[in-house]
Design a binder for these strands. Structure first.
Lengths: 341, 341
DNA sequence: GTGAAAGCGCTAACAT
DNA sequence: ATGTTAGCGCTTTCAC
């Protein structure tokens, strides 16, 4: 009785065992060229007996296909991005793709490193939520023929597929809602202003304020960089140190809304009685928290699915024109905004 | 002026351009054999000019090293597991490893598929939080010489590295706390009982109840399978349909505690006045939720870091004896348990 | 329908 | 110090 080395069985071993050539083994493996029924069975039997597993690295070397997609997001703790991942995975895993997940903590240096690593790994494509609106490295990826789909965040002068929400429009809508509820002393906790979403949400806010002829006070423009901690600090400075209490606060994402909410809670400021609060994207465990926050709710899962579909198309056909898809978001009105007058 | 095909520059191209042999190029690339200073510079210059990027697939084929680590977890929405990922990544990314992230939704079928895919991808190692305490496929991985580190969840008869919390002990401690606060009518919302943590938490609960001579009522043993939705349903059945209200509820993980909490909230049952609630692992946005839940808090980040260190050691040295590391958890006492009598 | 052989990009043993 | 060459496991062209 022969003893087989189970560790590294190659088509060569299978060929020898089945007494055929390695070409034939390859053919039954890929089922892409005619092989007689008997030979096929012989080979299949041999594969089974030897517990053969094709080496996908060798395959990749020939084919230049790794079945790997790099996903780069800023924040792995943010359920918004995790929903996106779920969406992506639900589509691409059907076609046997795996995801290399990397996160950048909104740090552009880190992002560049991560992208380089992914390109060296020869991933078939990259899905990116960049932490900088200027990203020249994107051109390198294009040159290397690695398809890129941008998700959530656009990049200036890029000529690639994009999937975003209507950040400007939604932000405008949310601000308008505050204004129509009678608020004027509105504080905005901005996101990362090096990022398209950060910019557009701020622009949407400013546009609404301007359209209603409401002045934006400098001290009410805070910079939270999409970070829980930073938002907490900044809002605390405003409310505790400067003792300025706006009538409403607009948090440009969920994490910052959470940080803001904690400041309010710690200082016994009731929402909406003392301060109103709205947020761009729902916070975690919204259902368990009083009051429920009025917010823009994005469809992260759908965004992820669209990205998955797009990237698969792009892998198959690199030459079509890039598309921009805007996934609509909802304004969800809850009880965190007080009506004034 | 020569025009270079930037897309696929190989060491061959570099060699030609620098007028040296490919071996020399390889040597400067790896810096592992003596090369004269001048030659080195020539080669480096050529690499730069051609924008050469080594093909890591070809490297992998020779070396059998992919610099890829597969991470398999049940739930990508659970911050506990995301913390673990952060811990792992913080260690292994220093050594240029990337993570292939896969999740299983507590579905063992899916887990097997995912593991197979990872093994075909020739990942250098796998970090696994299995959704089944019996996992014979583990033996296959071992045979294929893929190191495995189990995290959070043990597997029966496995002879691999393991990093867990003291589920039994912590569960015992948490239950004991409830009992010493005077509770007897305690309902447990169990996790997945095909999983070591699910079993051990339940065992810890039973042991404490037994030690204090308290009977466990059948109807108070619920099965939430570590799922938010399932826990919500089961607790609702108990409280709304059967109208049985325990004096305290023990949720065996954070997601199930959240589901439980929502049932209580929807039915106007106040914690801790009407029902006490404790949870194994802190819920999301704990700080914003009233009341703060008394809980076991695991050190997920540390668990991840340990796993990262272990896997690196294991990759370097496959032949040492497997270790089991138990990371201690804290009992965090908050205000969700009413003192009775 | 099947086999022989070249080659994907790189590493490393061997030769000089 | 540098070059030549075999070979990692697979696919695919070219013969037969």
């Amino acid at each position: 009785m022969e003893v087989f080395n189970l560790e590294n069985v190659t088509i060569k071993d299978v060929a020898k065992h089945a007494q055929v050539s390695i070409a034939t083994v390859s053919r039954v493996l890929n089922d892409n060229y005619p092989v007689s029924k008997e030979t096929k069975e012989k080979v299949l039997k041999a594969m089974n007996e030897l517990n053969f597993k094709p080496n996908s690295i060798a395959r990749s070397l020939k084919s230049n296909i790794t079945h790997l997609i790099g996903v780069v997001i800023p924040d792995i703790s943010n359920s918004f991005f995790m929903e996106i991942i779920k969406g992506i995975d639900s589509i691409v895993s059907k076609e046997e793709y795996s995801l290399i997940l990397s996160y950048t903590d909104e740090n552009f240096e880190k992002e560049l490193n991560v992208l380089k690593r992914l390109s060296q790994k020869r991933v078939d494509a990259i899905i990116l939520a960049s932490s900088n609106i200027d990203n020249e490295y994107l051109d390198d990826l294009i040159k290397e023929n690695i398809p890129v789909v941008l998700i959530d965040r656009k990049i200036k002068n890029s000529n690639v597929d994009v999937i975003v929400s209507d950040d400007f429009g939604s932000s405008y809508m949310l601000t308008k809602y505050l204004i129509e509820m009678g608020h004027e002393d509105i504080c905005i906790v901005n996101g990362n202003l090096n990022v398209s979403t950060g910019i557009e949400r701020y622009e949407g806010f400013k546009a609404a304020m301007m359209d209603y002829n409401i002045e934006i006070k400098d001290e009410f423009v805070l910079n939270g960089y999409y970070s829980w901690e930073k938002a907490y600090e900044e809002v605390k400075k405003l409310i505790v140190d400067k003792k300025k209490i706006p009538s409403a606060i607009f948090a440009a994402n969920n994490r910052m809304a959470e940080g803001t909410m904690l400041v309010l809670k710690e200082n016994n400021l009731k929402i909406p009685d003392d301060v109103s609060l709205v947020t761009f994207e729902e916070i975690e465990n919204q259902k368990l928290i009083e009051p429920k926050l009025t917010c823009i709710k994005q469809n992260a899962l759908l965004m992820g699915k669209k990205a998955g579909q797009m990237i698969l198309e792009r892998i198959k056909n690199k030459e079509t024109n890039p598309k921009e898809i805007v996934v609509v978001s909802d304004l969800v009105i809850n009880s965190s905004v007080k009506k004034i007058n």
